[in-house]
């Protein structure tokens, strides 16, 4: 069996919020193989965002072990982890996090700024291709303010895919969208998973996103509910 894309062992995360320390993750043991589309379901406050930040290498204040593509991210330097994020991981957020002073195409090419080996022309071509892929080829010169919520999330997805990541981490990607728009974003994920064999981990509290996944993990009070792990 190949190395899993993500593996955690005894993963815990305690947020020290002043007097009461909050245990956002408790002894989480998961393994996600390459090519899986995993949906992490759980109520608000159950630790979904925390889990995503930890396995995405954005939050290093955890206990336990986290391996990404076989590499223990607790042992690499901050700079090496940043490179790993840039090369292997794409992030999609509930609030899109587009930069409003930039155009759509500039937003999509943002990750290239921190790519030491990037080629400007290739990057621009890829960005255009991705915008075409998400159906926004004609909006390249617009600013995010001129786009609808669904369109903004598509731009964010194009940005996440710019450097051809192997892993897409999505935190409530449809949380800010109406049902129809959300549904189309979910379709886009399904396509990406099917056509590009992208490993996707999406956390949400909405059951409808789960229907697209190949596996569902349920998180409750920071614990993975193993009994309820189910294939979709």
């Amino acid at each position: 069996m190949s190395v899993p894309a993500i593996r955690t062992r005894g993963l815990s995360r305690v947020h020290d919020g002043g007097r009461d320390a909050r245990r956002a993750l408790v002894d989480v043991e998961i393994a996600i193989e390459e090519g899986e589309f995993v949906c992490v379901l759980g109520p608000s406050g159950s630790g979904k965002s925390t889990l995503l930040a930890v396995i995405g290498g954005l939050d290093r204040g955890y206990q336990g072990q986290v391996e990404l593509f076989g590499e223990d991210i607790g042992r690499v330097s901050d700079a090496a982890l940043a490179r790993l994020r840039g090369e292997r991981i794409g992030f999609v957020f509930q609030h899109f996090h587009l930069l409003h002073h930039l155009t759509v195409i500039e937003n999509v090419t943002t990750p290239a700024l921190f790519d030491p080996r990037g080629d400007e022309e290739a990057c621009l071509a890829r960005a255009k291709h991705l915008l075409d892929r998400v159906g926004l080829a004609d909006r390249a010169g617009d600013t995010p303010a001129e786009l609808s919520g669904g369109q903004r999330q598509r731009v964010a997805i194009a940005r996440a895919l710019l450097r051809k990541p192997k892993l897409l981490l999505c935190d409530e990607p449809t949380g800010n969208l109406d049902a129809d728009t959300g549904a189309r974003i979910i379709e886009l994920f399904e396509e990406l998973h099917r056509e590009e064999r992208l490993t996707i981990v999406a956390v949400t509290h909405e059951e409808r996103l789960a229907r697209a996944a190949t596996r569902i993990l349920r998180l409750h009070d920071g614990r993975v509910d193993a009994s309820k792990e189910e294939p979709a």
Binding site: D78, A79, A82, R85, H97, P111, L113, R159
Partner: peptide
């Protein structure tokens, strides 16, 4: 802060 965080997420090191 959120712009900086985004840059970090897409591959910027703290030094950069």
């Amino acid at each position: 802060r959120s712009e900086i965080a985004l840059y970090r997420a897409v591959g910027a090191t703290a030094g950069e």
